[in-house]
Protein backbone atom coordinates (compact mmCIF):
# COMPACT_ATOMS: atom_id res chain seq x y z
CA UNK A 1 0.00 0.00 0.00
CA UNK A 2 1.31 3.44 -0.85
CA UNK A 3 1.84 5.81 2.03
CA UNK A 4 -1.10 8.17 2.48
CA UNK A 5 -2.30 10.84 4.81
CA UNK A 6 -5.26 10.07 7.01
CA UNK A 7 -7.52 12.58 8.66
CA UNK A 8 -10.87 12.45 10.36
CA UNK A 9 -13.38 14.99 9.11
CA UNK A 10 -14.74 17.24 11.87
CA UNK A 11 -17.57 18.67 9.83
CA UNK A 12 -19.09 18.38 6.39
CA UNK A 13 -17.72 21.60 4.99
CA UNK A 14 -14.24 20.73 6.02
CA UNK A 15 -14.51 17.20 4.57
CA UNK A 16 -15.79 18.44 1.25
CA UNK A 17 -13.23 21.22 1.01
CA UNK A 18 -10.31 18.94 1.83
CA UNK A 19 -11.20 16.36 -0.78
CA UNK A 20 -12.14 19.01 -3.35
CA UNK A 21 -8.77 20.67 -2.89
CA UNK A 22 -6.71 17.54 -3.49
CA UNK A 23 -7.65 15.66 -6.65
CA UNK A 24 -5.67 12.75 -5.34
CA UNK A 25 -7.69 12.38 -2.14
CA UNK A 26 -10.77 10.32 -1.33
CA UNK A 27 -13.37 9.85 1.33
CA UNK A 28 -13.03 6.83 3.56
CA UNK A 29 -16.30 5.36 4.78
CA UNK A 30 -16.57 1.67 5.74
CA UNK A 31 -13.37 0.99 3.83
CA UNK A 32 -14.57 -2.38 2.59
CA UNK A 33 -13.87 -1.44 -1.00
CA UNK A 34 -11.35 1.38 -1.05
CA UNK A 35 -8.89 -0.32 1.28
CA UNK A 36 -8.87 -3.53 -0.78
CA UNK A 37 -8.25 -1.48 -3.89
CA UNK A 38 -5.41 0.42 -2.24
CA UNK A 39 -3.74 -2.79 -1.10
CA UNK A 40 -3.88 -4.01 -4.69
CA UNK A 41 -2.42 -0.69 -5.87
CA UNK A 42 -5.51 -0.04 -8.00
CA UNK A 43 -6.60 3.07 -6.13
CA UNK A 44 -3.68 5.28 -5.24
CA UNK A 45 -4.94 8.19 -3.15
CA UNK A 46 -2.35 10.07 -1.15
CA UNK A 47 -4.94 11.27 1.32
CA UNK A 48 -8.01 9.71 2.93
CA UNK A 49 -10.59 11.74 4.77
CA UNK A 50 -12.55 9.57 7.15
CA UNK A 51 -16.17 10.72 7.09
CA UNK A 52 -17.68 8.03 9.30
CA UNK A 53 -18.06 10.38 12.28
CA UNK A 54 -20.18 12.85 10.34
CA UNK A 55 -23.79 12.83 11.27
CA UNK A 56 -25.39 11.38 8.15
CA UNK A 57 -26.48 7.98 9.25
CA UNK A 58 -30.14 8.30 10.22
CA UNK A 59 -33.09 6.72 8.53
CA UNK A 60 -36.09 9.07 8.76
CA UNK A 61 -39.31 10.15 7.11
CA UNK A 62 -38.82 12.97 4.61
CA UNK A 63 -40.56 16.03 6.08
CA UNK A 64 -40.78 18.26 3.06
CA UNK A 65 -39.78 18.77 -0.55
CA UNK A 66 -40.51 16.66 -3.59
CA UNK A 67 -40.22 13.38 -1.70
CA UNK A 68 -42.30 14.38 1.29
CA UNK A 69 -43.64 11.32 3.09
CA UNK A 70 -40.92 9.15 1.62
CA UNK A 71 -37.92 7.87 3.54
CA UNK A 72 -34.42 9.28 3.70
CA UNK A 73 -31.50 6.97 4.42
CA UNK A 74 -28.21 8.47 5.52
CA UNK A 75 -25.24 8.48 3.16
CA UNK A 76 -23.10 7.22 6.00
CA UNK A 77 -25.62 4.80 7.43
CA UNK A 78 -24.45 1.21 7.54
CA UNK A 79 -25.97 -1.24 5.09
CA UNK A 80 -27.12 -3.54 7.91
CA UNK A 81 -28.82 -0.79 9.89
CA UNK A 82 -30.49 0.54 6.78
CA UNK A 83 -31.81 -2.85 5.69
CA UNK A 84 -33.24 -3.59 9.10
CA UNK A 85 -34.76 -0.22 9.90
CA UNK A 86 -38.54 -0.49 10.40
CA UNK A 87 -39.23 2.40 8.03
CA UNK A 88 -37.32 0.59 5.31
CA UNK A 89 -38.67 -2.86 6.10
CA UNK A 90 -42.26 -1.63 6.11
CA UNK A 91 -42.20 0.74 3.19
CA UNK A 92 -39.49 -0.67 0.94
CA UNK A 93 -39.00 -4.38 1.58
CA UNK A 94 -37.42 -4.46 -1.88
CA UNK A 95 -34.52 -2.41 -0.56
CA UNK A 96 -34.17 -4.59 2.51
CA UNK A 97 -34.06 -7.71 0.35
CA UNK A 98 -31.55 -6.20 -2.04
CA UNK A 99 -29.16 -5.05 0.66
CA UNK A 100 -29.33 -8.39 2.44
CA UNK A 101 -28.61 -10.19 -0.82
CA UNK A 102 -25.25 -8.46 -1.00
CA UNK A 103 -21.86 -9.35 0.45
CA UNK A 104 -21.84 -10.95 3.91
CA UNK A 105 -23.18 -9.93 7.29
CA UNK A 106 -19.74 -8.75 8.40
CA UNK A 107 -19.19 -6.63 5.31
CA UNK A 108 -22.69 -5.16 5.49
CA UNK A 109 -22.02 -4.17 9.08
CA UNK A 110 -19.10 -2.06 7.91
CA UNK A 111 -20.32 -0.94 4.50
CA UNK A 112 -22.08 2.40 4.22
CA UNK A 113 -24.83 3.43 1.83
CA UNK A 114 -22.71 6.08 0.12
CA UNK A 115 -19.86 3.61 -0.20
CA UNK A 116 -22.21 1.10 -1.73
CA UNK A 117 -23.17 3.56 -4.47
CA UNK A 118 -19.53 4.41 -5.13
CA UNK A 119 -18.05 0.92 -4.94
CA UNK A 120 -16.09 0.07 -8.02
CA UNK A 121 -16.53 -2.74 -10.49
CA UNK A 122 -15.39 -6.26 -9.64
CA UNK A 123 -13.89 -6.81 -13.10
CA UNK A 124 -10.85 -8.94 -12.48
CA UNK A 125 -8.76 -7.07 -15.05
CA UNK A 126 -9.52 -3.85 -13.22
CA UNK A 127 -8.14 -5.37 -10.02
CA UNK A 128 -4.97 -6.78 -11.57
CA UNK A 129 -2.46 -4.02 -12.25
CA UNK A 130 -0.59 -6.36 -14.60
CA UNK A 131 -3.55 -6.21 -16.97
CA UNK A 132 -4.75 -3.52 -19.35
CA UNK A 133 -7.82 -1.68 -18.11
CA UNK A 134 -9.21 1.60 -19.33
CA UNK A 135 -11.08 2.18 -16.12
CA UNK A 136 -7.95 1.92 -14.02
CA UNK A 137 -5.54 3.35 -16.55
CA UNK A 138 -7.29 5.24 -19.36
CA UNK A 139 -5.90 4.33 -22.75
CA UNK A 140 -4.35 1.02 -21.69
CA UNK A 141 -7.13 -1.02 -23.33
CA UNK A 142 -9.91 -3.21 -22.01
CA UNK A 143 -8.67 -6.59 -20.81
CA UNK A 144 -12.14 -8.03 -20.49
CA UNK A 145 -13.51 -7.14 -23.93
CA UNK A 146 -11.82 -10.17 -25.48
CA UNK A 147 -10.90 -11.85 -22.23
CA UNK A 148 -12.95 -13.77 -19.73
CA UNK A 149 -16.10 -11.72 -19.61
CA UNK A 150 -18.60 -14.11 -18.11
CA UNK A 151 -19.48 -11.62 -15.36
CA UNK A 152 -19.62 -8.63 -17.71
CA UNK A 153 -22.23 -6.42 -19.31
CA UNK A 154 -25.10 -7.04 -21.69
CA UNK A 155 -26.35 -3.48 -21.98
CA UNK A 156 -24.77 -0.12 -22.60
CA UNK A 157 -21.16 -1.23 -22.82
CA UNK A 158 -18.59 0.30 -25.10
CA UNK A 159 -15.44 -1.08 -26.66
CA UNK A 160 -13.59 0.81 -23.97
CA UNK A 161 -15.25 -0.97 -21.05
CA UNK A 162 -17.64 -3.86 -20.56
CA UNK A 163 -17.70 -3.86 -16.77
CA UNK A 164 -20.79 -4.01 -14.58
CA UNK A 165 -21.67 -2.15 -11.44
CA UNK A 166 -21.62 -4.76 -8.69
CA UNK A 167 -24.16 -3.39 -6.25
CA UNK A 168 -27.41 -5.04 -5.23
CA UNK A 169 -28.65 -2.15 -3.15
CA UNK A 170 -28.43 0.20 -6.13
CA UNK A 171 -30.65 -2.05 -8.23
CA UNK A 172 -33.45 -1.62 -5.72
CA UNK A 173 -32.76 2.11 -5.44
CA UNK A 174 -32.98 2.69 -9.17
CA UNK A 175 -36.22 0.72 -9.27
CA UNK A 176 -37.60 2.83 -6.46
CA UNK A 177 -36.78 6.11 -8.23
CA UNK A 178 -34.52 7.18 -5.39
CA UNK A 179 -32.77 10.54 -5.31
CA UNK A 180 -29.15 10.97 -4.27
CA UNK A 181 -28.55 13.99 -2.01
CA UNK A 182 -25.10 15.42 -2.42
CA UNK A 183 -23.22 18.10 -0.53
CA UNK A 184 -21.56 20.13 -3.28
CA UNK A 185 -18.18 21.79 -3.14
CA UNK A 186 -19.90 25.13 -3.33
CA UNK A 187 -21.57 24.42 -0.01
CA UNK A 188 -24.93 23.78 -1.64
CA UNK A 189 -26.85 20.55 -1.69
CA UNK A 190 -27.85 19.03 -5.00
CA UNK A 191 -30.26 16.22 -5.84
CA UNK A 192 -29.50 13.62 -8.48
CA UNK A 193 -32.17 11.21 -9.72
CA UNK A 194 -30.80 7.72 -9.14
CA UNK A 195 -31.08 6.69 -12.77
CA UNK A 196 -28.77 9.56 -13.71
CA UNK A 197 -26.26 8.99 -10.93
CA UNK A 198 -24.22 6.14 -12.45
CA UNK A 199 -22.87 6.43 -15.98
CA UNK A 200 -22.43 4.25 -18.99
CA UNK A 201 -18.75 3.84 -19.83
CA UNK A 202 -18.59 5.48 -23.26
CA UNK A 203 -14.99 6.47 -23.82
CA UNK A 204 -14.44 7.61 -20.25
CA UNK A 205 -14.91 4.43 -18.22
CA UNK A 206 -12.68 5.82 -15.48
CA UNK A 207 -15.74 7.75 -14.31
CA UNK A 208 -18.33 5.50 -12.69
CA UNK A 209 -20.79 8.24 -11.80
CA UNK A 210 -21.41 11.95 -12.15
CA UNK A 211 -20.13 12.99 -8.75
CA UNK A 212 -17.49 15.71 -8.78
CA UNK A 213 -14.28 15.46 -6.80
CA UNK A 214 -15.10 16.34 -3.21
CA UNK A 215 -18.85 15.92 -3.41
CA UNK A 216 -20.22 13.95 -0.49
CA UNK A 217 -23.31 11.75 -0.51
CA UNK A 218 -25.29 12.80 2.54
CA UNK A 219 -28.53 10.94 1.99
CA UNK A 220 -30.63 8.94 -0.40
CA UNK A 221 -34.32 9.73 -0.54
CA UNK A 222 -36.91 7.25 -1.61
CA UNK A 223 -40.27 8.66 -2.57
CA UNK A 224 -43.43 7.15 -1.19
CA UNK A 225 -44.93 4.38 -3.29
CA UNK A 226 -47.46 1.56 -3.19
CA UNK A 227 -45.15 -1.33 -3.97
CA UNK A 228 -44.60 -2.66 -0.46
CA UNK A 229 -46.95 -5.62 -0.80
CA UNK A 230 -45.72 -6.67 -4.24
CA UNK A 231 -42.02 -6.44 -4.68
CA UNK A 232 -39.18 -8.91 -4.92
CA UNK A 233 -35.44 -8.91 -5.32
CA UNK A 234 -34.02 -11.94 -7.09
CA UNK A 235 -30.33 -12.57 -7.27
CA UNK A 236 -28.86 -15.41 -9.33
CA UNK A 237 -25.28 -16.27 -8.49
CA UNK A 238 -22.67 -18.99 -8.68
CA UNK A 239 -23.19 -20.08 -5.09
CA UNK A 240 -26.03 -19.81 -2.63
CA UNK A 241 -24.74 -16.71 -0.87
CA UNK A 242 -21.81 -14.28 -0.75
CA UNK A 243 -21.23 -13.94 -4.45
CA UNK A 244 -21.81 -11.12 -6.88
CA UNK A 245 -24.82 -11.41 -9.15
CA UNK A 246 -24.68 -13.12 -12.49
CA UNK A 247 -28.00 -11.38 -12.96
CA UNK A 248 -30.30 -9.81 -10.43
CA UNK A 249 -33.75 -8.33 -10.80
CA UNK A 250 -35.68 -5.91 -8.64
CA UNK A 251 -39.36 -6.08 -9.42
CA UNK A 252 -42.24 -4.11 -7.94
CA UNK A 253 -45.87 -3.92 -8.96
CA UNK A 254 -48.97 -1.93 -8.09
CA UNK A 255 -52.14 -3.55 -9.26
CA UNK A 256 -55.47 -1.85 -9.80
CA UNK A 257 -58.40 -4.05 -10.69
CA UNK A 258 -56.99 -6.56 -13.12
CA UNK A 259 -54.31 -4.35 -14.53
CA UNK A 260 -50.80 -3.32 -13.65
CA UNK A 261 -51.07 0.31 -12.68
CA UNK A 262 -47.45 0.85 -11.97
CA UNK A 263 -44.44 -1.40 -12.38
CA UNK A 264 -40.70 -1.20 -11.84
CA UNK A 265 -38.12 -3.60 -13.14
CA UNK A 266 -34.40 -3.08 -12.69
CA UNK A 267 -31.45 -5.36 -13.25
CA UNK A 268 -28.04 -5.85 -11.71
CA UNK A 269 -25.02 -7.57 -13.15
CA UNK A 270 -25.85 -6.50 -16.68
CA UNK A 271 -24.51 -3.01 -17.14
CA UNK A 272 -22.05 -0.34 -16.06
CA UNK A 273 -24.94 1.13 -14.10
CA UNK A 274 -27.88 -0.35 -12.24
CA UNK A 275 -30.09 -1.07 -15.22
CA UNK A 276 -33.65 0.13 -15.29
CA UNK A 277 -35.59 -2.22 -17.56
CA UNK A 278 -37.62 0.46 -19.24
CA UNK A 279 -38.78 -1.70 -22.11
CA UNK A 280 -40.19 -4.30 -19.76
CA UNK A 281 -41.94 -1.64 -17.72
CA UNK A 282 -43.40 -0.01 -20.83
CA UNK A 283 -44.77 -3.31 -22.02
CA UNK A 284 -46.39 -4.21 -18.72
CA UNK A 285 -48.01 -0.96 -17.75
CA UNK A 286 -51.78 -1.27 -18.06
CA UNK A 287 -51.69 -4.99 -18.84
CA UNK A 288 -52.73 -7.96 -16.74
CA UNK A 289 -50.14 -9.53 -14.44
CA UNK A 290 -49.98 -12.85 -16.27
CA UNK A 291 -47.04 -15.11 -16.91
CA UNK A 292 -47.46 -14.60 -20.63
CA UNK A 293 -47.18 -10.85 -20.20
CA UNK A 294 -44.19 -11.21 -17.90
CA UNK A 295 -42.48 -13.31 -20.57
CA UNK A 296 -43.28 -10.83 -23.29
CA UNK A 297 -41.99 -8.01 -21.12
CA UNK A 298 -38.77 -9.89 -20.45
CA UNK A 299 -38.39 -10.51 -24.18
CA UNK A 300 -38.93 -6.84 -24.87
CA UNK A 301 -36.14 -5.93 -22.49
CA UNK A 302 -33.64 -8.64 -23.36
CA UNK A 303 -34.05 -8.13 -27.10
CA UNK A 304 -31.61 -5.26 -26.78
CA UNK A 305 -28.98 -7.24 -24.91
CA UNK A 306 -25.59 -7.42 -26.57
CA UNK A 307 -23.76 -10.37 -25.07
CA UNK A 308 -20.02 -10.89 -25.12
CA UNK A 309 -18.15 -14.13 -25.74
CA UNK A 310 -18.66 -15.71 -22.31
CA UNK A 311 -21.87 -14.18 -21.02
CA UNK A 312 -24.35 -15.27 -23.68
CA UNK A 313 -26.15 -17.36 -21.09
CA UNK A 314 -27.04 -14.20 -19.21
CA UNK A 315 -29.50 -13.19 -21.93
CA UNK A 316 -31.71 -16.22 -21.35
CA UNK A 317 -30.99 -16.13 -17.63
CA UNK A 318 -31.98 -12.47 -17.51
CA UNK A 319 -35.21 -13.21 -19.32
CA UNK A 320 -36.13 -15.95 -16.89
CA UNK A 321 -35.04 -13.90 -13.90
CA UNK A 322 -37.35 -11.04 -14.87
CA UNK A 323 -40.28 -13.45 -15.15
CA UNK A 324 -39.44 -15.09 -11.85
CA UNK A 325 -38.98 -11.82 -9.98
CA UNK A 326 -42.28 -10.44 -11.24
CA UNK A 327 -44.01 -13.71 -10.35
CA UNK A 328 -42.58 -13.69 -6.85
CA UNK A 329 -43.47 -10.04 -6.41
CA UNK A 330 -47.09 -10.89 -7.25
CA UNK A 331 -46.97 -13.58 -4.57
CA UNK A 332 -46.17 -10.94 -2.01
CA UNK A 333 -42.43 -10.93 -2.30
CA UNK A 334 -41.73 -14.05 -0.33
CA UNK A 335 -39.39 -16.76 -1.42
CA UNK A 336 -42.13 -19.36 -1.69
Amino acid sequence: MRPFKYSRAQNTGNAVQTVAANTNSKFLAGGTNILDLMKEDVERPDELVDVTRLNFSQVRTVEGGANKGGVSIGGLGRNTDTANHPLVRQNFPLLTQAILAGASQQIRNMATNGGNLNQRTRCSYFYDTAMPCNKREPGSGCGALEGINRMHALFGWSNDCVAVHPSDMCVALVALDAVVKVQGTDGKERSIPFADYHRLPGNTPQKDNILNQGELITAIEIPKNNFASKSYYLKVRDRASYAFALVSVAAALEIEGNAIKNVRVAMGGVSHKPWRAVEAEKFLTGKAATEANFKAAADAEMRNAKPLEHNKFKVELGRRAIVRALTQAMKGGTNA
Binding site: D128, G147, I148, R239, A240
Partner: peptide, 29 residues
Protein backbone atom coordinates in the same frame (compact mmCIF):
# COMPACT_ATOMS: atom_id res chain seq x y z
CA UNK B 1 -20.93 -26.70 -8.13
CA UNK B 2 -18.49 -23.81 -8.14
CA UNK B 3 -14.75 -24.26 -7.85
CA UNK B 4 -12.84 -23.26 -10.94
CA UNK B 5 -9.66 -21.33 -11.57
CA UNK B 6 -9.95 -19.56 -14.89
CA UNK B 7 -7.06 -18.30 -16.98
CA UNK B 8 -7.05 -15.70 -19.71
CA UNK B 9 -6.21 -17.37 -23.01
CA UNK B 10 -3.95 -14.54 -24.14
CA UNK B 11 -1.84 -13.88 -21.08
CA UNK B 12 -2.31 -16.99 -18.92
CA UNK B 13 -3.14 -14.90 -15.88
CA UNK B 14 -5.79 -16.18 -13.50
CA UNK B 15 -8.92 -14.04 -13.49
CA UNK B 16 -10.00 -15.85 -10.36
CA UNK B 17 -7.59 -13.93 -8.18
CA UNK B 18 -9.20 -13.90 -4.75
CA UNK B 19 -11.86 -15.67 -2.76
CA UNK B 20 -14.38 -13.24 -4.22
CA UNK B 21 -13.86 -14.88 -7.64
CA UNK B 22 -12.64 -18.34 -6.67
CA UNK B 23 -15.75 -19.64 -5.00
CA UNK B 24 -15.69 -22.25 -2.29
CA UNK B 25 -18.91 -23.35 -0.58
CA UNK B 26 -20.35 -21.01 2.02
CA UNK B 27 -22.69 -22.09 4.82
CA UNK B 28 -25.77 -21.83 2.67
CA UNK B 29 -24.29 -24.20 0.09
Amino acid sequence: LMEESQFDKRWANPVTRTLADYHVPVNLD
